[in-house]
Amino acid sequence: MFRQSLLKKIKKSGLIGRGCNNFLVAEKWEMVKRVKGAEKFVVCNISESEPGIFKDKYILEKWPQLVLDGINLAMHEIKAKKGFVYLNPLYYGEFQASLEQIILKNNYSIELFEKPLHDYVGGEETAVLNSMQGLRVEPRLKPPYPTKVGFYGAPTLIHNCETFYAVSLTNSGVYKNTRFYCLSGVDRANDVKELATDLTVRAVLQEFDHTPSVDFFYQVGGGAAGFCYNYKQLNRKFEGSPAIIIYKNNDSEQAIVMKWLDFFRKESCGQCVPCREGTFRLRNLMYTYYQGGKLDKKAFDDLILSLQKTSLCALGRTATNAVVSYFKNVKGI
C-alpha cells in the first residue's frame, strides 16, 4: 500500500525531473515498471559538470540523507535490487565518506561510482551508463531509452540528484513545488536558492537581489548550453537548467565567444561527424576571424545548422545555443 501511494503522490504532484529534459518523473517510473521480469537499476546522476551549475553540490552538503532516501524509495517502487550514485571525481572526493556512512547506517543497497573524468558529455544519461559499464564515455543512440535498455541492457531509472531529493520530500508530504536556482557571474559569489518552480528569469534575479540593466546580459540554462538574453528579454520561464550567469555587456566578445567554442570543441565526445568536426571548425573559423582574418559567414551558418539539426546527442545540438543567441540578442546581429 505504501509503495503504491508514493507513485500516486508523485503523479499528483506533477513532479518534473531535474535533469534538463523536463520529463515527468511518474511517467519515467511507470515506463521502467512496465518492463516485465527484468532486473532493474536506479542511478542517481551527480555528474554536474556544466559551468554555472552547482546546485547538486549544495544539496549534497545539506541533505545527503534525503537524496539517498529518494534513491531507496525509487528502488522499492520499481523493484530494483541495486542503486548507484554516479559522482564526478571532485564530488566523489568530497562526499564519499559522508554518503557511505549514510548508506551503511541505513543498510541501503546503493553503491557509489566515481566518474572517470570531470567532463561534460559524461553527464548525459546514456554516457553515464557507458561509463559505469567501462565503455567509452559517450552517448548512445536513442531510442532505446534507458528506461527500457539501460545499465548492461537492463531497464534503468536515471534521475538527477535533485529529483531524488524532491522524491523524498514528496514521500513525506512536504514537497512545496520548489527547485534550486543557481546564480553566478560578474561581481558575485556563486549562489543557490530554493524557490518556486515556475518563476520567470526576472523574478529569480529579483530574489537574488539583482536588478537587470543595460550594462548586463544573461546566460540562462547553464554556462555552456544556455541561451543569452539582454535585460529586456527576461520575462520568460526557464528552459533547461535553472541557472543564470551574469555577464557585463562590455566584456570582450572574443573572450566570451572563444570560451564557449573552446569548451565544446574540448567536450565533444568525437562520435558523430557534425559535432566532432563542426565544433572544431567553428572554433577555428572564429579564431581566425578574431585574429584579424575574414569571417566566412556561409561556413559559420552551415556549421551551426549542421550542429543544431544533425548532431547525435544534445551536446552537439545545443553547442551553438550560446553563441547564436549572444550574437542575436546581445550584439543584435
Partner: peptide
C-alpha cells in the same frame, strides 16, 4: 543542405 555540410566535413 545539411547532407552537403556533413559530407564536406567528412572530406575534411
Amino acid at each position: 543542405s545539411l547532407r552537403k555540410t556533413n559530407l564536406e566535413l567528412i572530406f575534411s
